[in-house]
């Protein structure tokens, strides 16, 4: 079983169609990875489904980078 970080990166790769080497922890979805607002909604929905968590809009707005996403999943999974 791969780590949560790897699984999150895989979702990002799949959803945004970016190369693995672009998915650095500090990379911002919109500025660095070319996402638009609908891409980020879709990304959050994919994480919710993959990890069985609910991400309220107020939290989703704060998930701006790859590391934000990994941190969020790690701290909310299985709670």
């Amino acid at each position: 079983m791969s780590s949560i970080a790897d699984q999150v990166k895989e979702i990002i790769k799949e959803q945004l169609g970016v190369e693995e080497e672009e998915i650095k922890p500090e990379a911002k979805f919109i500025e660095d990875l070319g996402a638009d607002s609908l891409d980020t909604v879709e990304l959050v929905m994919a994480m919710e489904e993959k990890f069985g968590i609910e991400i309220p809009d107020s939290d989703a707005e704060k998930i701006l980078t790859v590391q934000d996403a990994i941190n969020y999943v790690e701290s909310h999974i299985n709670k």
Binding site: L38, E42, E49
Partner: peptide, 13 residues
């Protein structure tokens, strides 16, 4: 199959 979460925000456009 999956409820509303299965529907992409890109569906309509």
């Amino acid at each position: 199959e999956r409820g509303y979460k299965g529907v992409s925000p890109f569906f309509i456009p």
